[in-house]
Amino acid sequence: MQSQHFHHFDLNNDANDAHRLTNKMAYATDHSTHGRSAFAGIVAAFRERSARRRLYKDTLRELNSLSSRELSDLGLHRSMIRRIAYQAAYSA
């Protein structure tokens, strides 16, 4: 076994090694926290997509339930229903 392949941290004698060790520990802590926030972001994105899809389907269902006369009173044609529901759910 060759000792040159192993790095030895002597915190009492080498301030540089102590600094490198501290940086590595801080990075590991930051990385762990980042993983949890990434998961929270995935969950939030899933919930947002689900809410938008639900709004689209609800709007589509409500507009399809209207008679042609009621749609005409709103200035809409039945062929416009899908586009209007999509815009209601996915437009900013």
Results as ranks from 00 to 15, higher is better:
2 Q>A: 13
3 S>G: 09
3 S>Q: 14
5 H>D: 08
6 F>Y: 05
8 H>V: 11
8 H>I: 06
13 N>R: 14
14 D>A: 05
14 D>S: 05
18 A>C: 08
18 A>S: 12
19 H>G: 10
20 R>G: 02
26 A>N: 11
26 A>G: 01
27 Y>L: 12
28 A>K: 15
28 A>C: 04
28 A>I: 03
30 D>Y: 15
30 D>M: 13
34 H>P: 01
37 S>F: 15
39 F>L: 15
39 F>P: 00
39 F>H: 10
39 F>C: 04
39 F>E: 13
41 G>R: 02
43 V>G: 00
43 V>L: 07
45 A>Y: 02
46 F>T: 15
48 E>G: 01
48 E>R: 14
50 S>E: 11
51 A>I: 05
52 R>T: 00
53 R>S: 06
54 R>T: 11
56 Y>P: 05
56 Y>W: 11
60 L>V: 01
61 R>W: 00
61 R>C: 05
61 R>S: 06
64 N>Y: 01
66 L>C: 04
67 S>Y: 05
70 E>D: 15
70 E>L: 08
72 S>A: 15
73 D>L: 13
80 M>Y: 03
80 M>A: 09
81 I>V: 04
82 R>M: 06
84 I>R: 04
84 I>Q: 02
87 Q>E: 10
87 Q>I: 10
88 A>C: 03
92 A>R: 15
